[in-house]
Design a protein around this nucleic acid. Structure first.
Lengths: 246, 246
DNA sequence: GAGGTTCTGTGGTCTAACCACACTCTAAAG
DNA sequence: CTTTAGAGTGTGGTTAGACCACAGAACCTC
């Protein structure tokens, strides 16, 4: 995005230079996950720029989930490299939804796409599946609606992770916030929450069972129907909700 | 991401406050697409923070593709609200690929997933399809390999847009950089580029034809085979490359 | 009226301070 | 000797104020 744009007369802004330097360090492996960036003042001196510019670059990386900044000293302090792709995608999605340029219906549709794909190829031995099962247990005896929804989102996230595709997992994770936010609003439209919750639990069990029977196709269909059914029941179905099919 | 973290003793950083304020303005519609933020100095005074903090917030928004900052005066100047979801996702993906936490194989796999889904439900009357056809024409007489690849990426991007899902389009767009970067590297492994290029063109035509015949299923299959075939020919197939199926 | 010239407001950058924090070291107290 | 209270050190967080480059607008001069 920043570099590679062969625009002559393009005066690269200073913080982008810092960004480029750090990205290069990441590419060459000189900076790896868990590694720490030089202190802001040090880095500023090294690159011959002001600390301000260094900080702007770090803010961007932080928003992207690439680093985490911590004050003080010790292992928790300093600016350390992390890997949280979800952070960037999630914030970006939320912001663009705020500008009304990413319709909620599209998000639901995308969720169905990603999730049905993921369960269709979920690995039976994935630890994420075990986590999903555990979450399902918790949901069995969960009286609170909000807590139930939170668990529900985590359950679906776990399903998405079971396919073992980091990009798909990250994208699903980034939808999490958006999903939880309006899923909560939708419960108000439901006539009988207890009945709905019971149905959701039952459907979750069916999905897990299908996965364990290595019946990916069925699992995908169940997931699609599950999500679709919820939004339809709440009166806000995606504009075209059947999953990827061919 | 920023708020909602119910951590007591959590001192929100100043630039996050600015971020929150701006996001709120976007949500309520007081700031809309094409609108201009108050000048940095003005905003700093309004929110009773330093200009530095305002700038850090703006840097983040800029990286997310939410605003564009321009110097000088006139319509091109100032900090303007834009909508470029691709920017955020693209940069984030590139950075996380740099940290080796998003395997290329996963990206290819995700590309196949999104793209085959998109063509399966492409709207025949979509302007994106017309653009795809135009790009195809250009590729017919394109001697340069790099240029051909650039056109190829744009062609596939247009296909993804034809489904009319903004989120899917944004995600595909964000993969663009990553795709083009290693697609270029892969050409070195090809024994006969001219032959390959001819085949790719032919496959593109088939895909477009299938879409226009409203045969989404066939189109999806063709796209999957098309992408998969290329990477296999170059000796770097995704680890599991068949598209969503049920 | 056409052509410069100055004015004004914008973001871009830098410096130099100060703060809060969390660990580390040290020296006094027991 | 152990414990503990305090100073020391290095980190990011924040601020104020200054200066620059830029681009349009308003103003003059010819």
């Amino acid at each position: 995005m920043w570099s590679n744009h062969i625009k002559y007369h393009w005066h690269m802004r200073t913080h982008q230079l810092v960004l480029q330097w750090i990205e290069n360090q990441l590419s060459t492996g000189e900076l790896a996950l868990g590694g720490r960036l030089p202190a802001e003042r040090t880095l500023a001196e090294q690159l011959q720029v002001s600390r301000t510019s260094v900080r702007e670059a770090i803010r961007v990386l932080e928003a992207m989930g690439v680093v985490r900044a911590g004050v003080g000293s010790g292992p928790e302090a300093g600016t350390v490299v992390i890997a949280d792709p979800t952070a960037a995608l999630g914030s970006a999605l939320r912001l663009h939804v705020a500008t009304s340029h990413l319709p909620v219906a599209d998000i639901v549709q995308t969720r169905i796409l990603l999730e049905s794909w993921a369960v269709a190829r979920a690995r039976t031995d994935s630890p994420a599946l075990a986590e999903a099962a555990a979450l399902l247990e918790k949901m069995e005896a969960c009286p609170d609606t909000d807590e139930f929804l939170a668990l529900d989102v985590r359950f679906h996230l776990a399903l998405a992770e079971a396919a073992g595709n980091a990009v798909v997992s990250a994208m699903m994770g980034s939808l999490r916030e958006a999903i939880q936010s309006y899923a909560g609003k939708l419960t108000a439209n439901l006539p009988d929450w207890d009945a709905t919750a019971a149905r959701l639990r039952a459907e979750h069990r069916e999905i897990l069972a299908a996965i364990h029977k290595h019946d990916g196709g069925t699992a995908a269909g169940l997931v699609a129907a599950h999500i679709e059914g919820y939004y339809k029941e709440a009166g806000l179905g995606p504009r075209d909700s059947d999953p990827a099919r061919q």
